[in-house]
């Protein structure tokens, strides 16, 4: 997708967001919104990555919805997990920062994987370096050196849907 098209898409997204936030078709609001959207879309570095054409792929949107459903489920589980650990009198935690490897390629996929990991039970992404994710885990299990098993436990549930959305 060439740069101009990408910038026009940026403009559409920003202006659409403005319309939703102001929720009025008053002409003064429209003019201010249009000026701001032009400034942001054309004078700052773009919002959308190189391969923005993927935004128009219905299959990718379908998998994005699947990912959202999966994520919602794990967010609810995560909340009951925190509830259990926090109200338990003995505070059952065994924390530490572990390293896992992801097979996802694009930056967007890694960013969404990192955010998804943060919202799921007991894990918080501290940093992403290359294909390694450093994850603070509230209840590290015994096999400390087994990177593959930990990757499966922490990232496995999201990698397949995110790969279908982004890679």
């Amino acid at each position: 997708m060439d740069t101009l098209k990408r910038r026009l898409l940026d403009f559409t997204i920003i202006f659409g967001l403005w319309l939703l936030l102001t929720w009025s078709l008053d002409w003064q609001g429209l003019i201010v919104g249009a000026i701001l959207a032009v400034l942001i879309a054309f004078f700052l570095s773009g919002l959308l990555p190189e391969k923005a054409g993927r935004l128009f792929s219905p299959v990718r949107w379908f998998w994005a919805l699947v990912h959202m459903a999966l994520l919602s489920f794990w967010i609810i589980v995560a909340n009951f997990d925190v509830l259990y650990r926090v109200v338990h009198p003995n505070l059952p935690i065994r924390p530490g920062i572990v390293k896992i490897k992801t097979t996802l390629k694009s930056d967007q996929a890694k960013a969404f994987l990192a955010n998804s990991i943060t919202l799921t039970p007991g894990t918080l992404t501290v940093d992403v370096i290359g294909d390694s994710l450093y994850v603070h885990w509230i209840n590290v299990h015994e096999r400390l050196e087994d990177t593959e098993a930990m990757t499966r436990d922490i990232a496995g549930r999201f990698e397949s849907t995110l790969r279908r959305v982004f890679d």
Partner: peptide, 29 residues
């Protein structure tokens, strides 16, 4: 209720990383 759980976690858990865990998950939901 879950915001409250997050706040309790913020008080009870021992270090900044564990506290962030509770704060992020519960306060988001």
């Amino acid at each position: 209720f879950f915001d409250l759980v997050g706040a309790i976690g913020l008080l009870r858990l021992p270090d900044v990383y564990n506290r962030l865990q509770a704060a992020t998950k519960c306060v988001t939901l």
